[in-house]
Design a protein around this nucleic acid. Structure first.
Length: 731
DNA sequence: ATTCCCGACGTTTTT
DNA sequence: CGTCGGGAAT
């Protein structure tokens, strides 16, 4: 008998042993997908269909890739040398570093993260004289990214752009591309796009890679975009051995260019393709599955499948109806505490639509001393102190990286300000060299005058480290830099409190590098940077300590927990405001709900608030997804302070787009200023949640624009927008 | 060059 | 309410 197949159900087994030709595996939530993927790889190896070197498996996150590699290694007793299990991005990065010269890049090119890219876009907009409100850098970035993913280059777009706005975007796009090239840098999209272009324009290179890979395996196929689709086409030899695994109901990255048609049209793309559906769910109770299935059934873009489970019954869903975001958080945390008595915190997760929602929950958890961890949001590598250090490292590896140069040339302070940088930039552009190179020869350029010395010293510092970078471990190099720059003193002098946490972050960073080095003993600084630039918070996330986890639903894909809190179920939040008008986007929101709900093994809580602050007070309408859930599966718990005002029941049927007539609560108890301006006039004593007790000195404006000048005891006077501050009248 | 204060602005999800 | 960028003060 075969230990790789024995404990699989018939469909899973078929997905493992159907090795040749195109195969689509529709893997419902919790259907044992990872198990099938790893068994399939191990099966190909043990049956001698291919050597590890001839297999390519692609996933979306580094974490998933790492887990898959580990599990295959376990199945194979460790003999998987050369097996490529990687993300699309890291595979492309490796491909490009080998072939960079063919497309005019150095093989030590830098990868710009979203922040770096935005800086370049901003600079480009400014340089083109387009600065102003009508060209928001982020919107431009989105457009450029969309164009790239459609394989429309800057030159092409420039020639076909019509009208003022398209022309402006085309110019920004073109300049952005130019600057990226000058910096020897690529953005995330470029990794994919340049790989495809390289394979398209160099048939002999494409042939080499094609002949190498005998079997392709793609995870999360529903999230692939057009460029990724093309990449697979270029890598696929005439053997057509491609197996894609996915679930159209879990396609949640349409906004990033993912094309659900890739999975819906697979059979048309690959004639003769076989399809296997994994429909038995091993994760959730029957109740949870029925709830999720009931909601997703409202979608049209589906291949259709019927998930079933051998697990009968299960707790009903609990719907918590609360007054405000704060109340929502308080009641959720109450339940966390209660459940925490009998189960582990690490078995629970709070999932929200947007990162901004995490704050209220954090506050409550901190107040009650519950250990928690947040995944995503302000990612570790996005923190200023870490980005600054990384900029030093990037500059050491790539002297052309002007963005990193600008980031650190005056950090710590070296007396090099905007004027000097402007001058330096002009000289560098004229001579076609980078900022760092120009700085190194500053004494030859009269306009730099007295600043030449500081510039040359900086360039010398970078140069010195470049020479020794490969002779010592990366962690030691970073430690040396930190000491040489006097960063500890520098950060402490800025601000004692935040400086201390920054120092701790730097220590964590250095520890992380050490750990990386033990796993990759012969790795150079350049290799470290190449890897690290593709890492995200999610990849570092470990479920080790007994902490409750908070994250967005997007981040939770692929994970599972006993207890799941799906919060903020209100129209405008979830489904998100911007998606409400478009049926296609509503379907994606619905899939997101489906992903969130199916993370739960045993118990699912849904919560909503009736009032939520978003630029002032707004009445919230319960999410349509609550209404779409089979009502008999829901147990309603109403935490609203009864009798003060009435809102329709959360589940009452109502035409979707019709907002309720606004009903202002006639509240007793807490006084929110924006509702009762007349209570606030000079002399009144009020209480502010962060500043404490204070006396109103002056008032200005009325209604939403009411501004108060308040003298707080021991803090001094502060001007406060009454609309936002939660002030309580004390006397 | 740097710092500090003010007003404008904002909020989706991420490799 | 936060954060960020611009502009004036030092």
């Amino acid at each position: 008998m075969n230990r790789l197949l024995d404990d699989l159900n018939p469909e899973q087994r078929a997905a493992v042993i159907t090795t040749d030709g195109p195969l689509l595996v529709i893997a419902g939530a919790g259907s044992g997908k990872t198990r099938v993927l790893t068994r399939r790889l191990a099966y190909l190896l043990t049956e001698r269909k291919a050597t590890p070197y001839q297999l390519l498996a692609v996933t979306f996150t580094n974490k998933a890739a790492g887990e898959m590699r580990d599990r295959v290694a376990e199945l194979m007793g460790g003999e998987i040398g050369g097996l490529q299990v990687s993300t699309f991005h890291s595979f492309c990065s490796r491909l490009l570093r080998r072939e960079a010269v063919r497309i005019g890049y150095d093989n030590q090119f830098t990868v710009f993260d979203a922040g770096d890219s935005e800086t370049v876009i901003k600079n480009s907009i400014k340089e083109l004289g387009l600065a102003g409100t009508q060209f928001a850098p982020r919107a431009q970035m989105r457009k450029i990214s969309d164009l790239k993913n459609k394989l429309v280059g800057a030159t092409t777009y420039l020639s076909q752009a019509g009208g003022y706005f398209e022309n402006a975007t085309a110019k920004i796009y073109a300049l952005y591309e130019k600057r990226l090239r000058e910096c020897d840098a690529m953005d995330f999209d470029d990794l994919l796009v340049n790989s495809v272009l390289l394979l398209r324009d160099n048939p002999e290179v494409a042939k080499n890679w094609r002949e190498r890979f005998r079997y392709l395996l793609v995870d999360e196929y529903q999230d692939t975009n057009h460029v990724q689709y093309l990449l697979l086409k270029y890598l696929l030899d005439s053997h057509n051995n491609i197996c894609v695994v996915g679930d159209e109901d879990q396609s949640i990255y349409g906004w990033r260019g993912a094309d659900i048609r890739n999975i819906l049209d697979f059979e048309r793309d690959y004639p003769g393709a076989k399809i296997i559906k994994l429909e038995q769910n091993y994760r959730s109770t029957h109740t949870i599955l029925a709830a999720a299935s009931g909601v997703i059934a409202n979608n049209e873009s589906r291949k259709g499948k019927t998930l079933w489970t051998a697990l009968k019954g299960g707790d009903p869903l609990s719907l918590l109806i609360t007054d405000s975001a704060e109340d929502e958080a308080r009641h959720v945390v109450d339940i966390v505490v209660r459940r925490g008595e009998t189960s582990r915190l690490s078995d629970m997760v709070i999932l929200y639509r947007t990162n901004a929602q995490s704050r209220a929950f954090e506050e409550q958890l901190r107040r009650r001393n519950i250990p928690y961890q947040i995944v995503g949001g302000l990612a570790f590598y996005q923190r200023k102190e870490i980005k600054d250090l990384l900029a030093y490292l990037k500059l050491i590896v790539n002297p052309k990286d002007d963005i990193s140069f600008n980031r650190v040339v005056n950090f710590p302070k070296r007396g090099i300000g905007d004027r000097t940088i402007e001058e330096l930039t002009t000289i560098a552009r004229a001579s076609g060299s980078s900022l760092l190179e120009t700085a190194g020869m500053a004494n030859q350029h009269a306009p730099l005058g007295a600043k030449a010395k500081a510039l040359m010293a900086f360039a010398g510092l970078i140069e010195k480290h470049r020479e020794t970078a490969d002779t010592k471990p990366v962690a030691v190099l970073v430690q040396d830099i930190v000491e040489e720059l006097g960063l500890v003193q520098e950060l402490l002098s800025e601000d004692k409190v935040t400086g201390q946490t920054k120092i701790e972050n730097i220590e964590t960073f250095i520890e992380g590098i050490s750990e990386y080095s033990t796993h990759n003993p012969s790795s150079t600084l350049a290799q470290y940077l190449a890897d690290i630039s593709l890492f995200t918070d999610l990849d570092i996330y470990k479920e080790i300590e007994n902490k409750i986890t908070l994250m967005t639903i997007h981040s939770a894909k692929g994970l599972e927990y006993d207890t799941v809190f799906l919060v903020g179920l209100e129209e405008g939040i979830f489904p998100f405001e911007r998606s409400i008008a478009e049926p296609k986007q509503i379907e994606e929101e619905r899939r997101l709900f489906y992903v969130g709900a199916t993370r739960a093994r045993k118990k699912l809580y849904l919560t909503c608030a009736v009032m939520r602050h978003r630029f002032g007070a707004v009445d919230s309408i319960p999410s349509r997804f609550i209404r779409e859930t089979p009502q008999e599966l829901i147990e309603k718990i109403d935490f609203r302070r009864q009798g003060m005002y009435s809102l329709p029941s959360a589940t009452q049927a109502r035409p979707m787009q019709q907002p309720l007539p606004s009903q202002r609560p006639q509240e007793a108890g807490v006084h929110y200023v924006y509702e009762e301006n007349e209570t606030f006039h000079p002399g009144r004593v009020v209480h502010h949640p962060t500043f404490g007790r204070g006396r109103i000195v002056t008032t200005e404006g009325v209604g939403d624009s009411l501004k108060l000048e308040i003298s707080f005891t021991g803090i001094g006077t502060k001007k406060i927008m009454a609309r936002f501050a939660k002030l309580k009248v004390v006397g």
